[in-house]
Computed example of a mutant assay.
Amino acid sequence: MKALIALFTASTLALGANVALARDLGPDEALKLRDAGTIQSFEKLNEAAVAKHPGAKVEETELEEEYGRYVYQVELRDEKGQQWDLELDAKTGEVLKDHQDD
Rank of each mutant, 00 (worst) to 15 (best):
H53S: 03
A90S: 09
E29M: 06
A36W: 00
L76Y: 03
H99D: 12
E94C: 01
F42P: 00
E60Q: 13
G68H: 08
D24C: 01
T38V: 13
L33Q: 11
A17V: 12
L4M: 13
R69Y: 07
T38R: 13
E29N: 07
L96N: 03
L63A: 02
L33A: 13
F42S: 10
A90Q: 03
K52C: 06
E75M: 11
V50S: 00
G68F: 07
K44I: 04
A17P: 02
H53E: 02
T9F: 07
Y70M: 04
T92C: 01
D78L: 09
K44M: 03
E62Q: 06
L31V: 13
E64M: 09
K97M: 10
T9M: 14
T61Q: 03
E79C: 00
L86H: 08
A30C: 10
S11Y: 12
L25D: 14
E94L: 07
N46K: 09
T61C: 05
E43W: 06
S11C: 15
V95P: 06
E79H: 05
L21M: 09
F42D: 08
L7Q: 05
A48S: 08
M1K: 10
L76W: 02
R69E: 14
T61L: 02
L15W: 12
V58T: 05
A49K: 01
P27V: 08
V50A: 00
A49C: 08
E94A: 15
L45C: 04
E94F: 05
R23S: 14
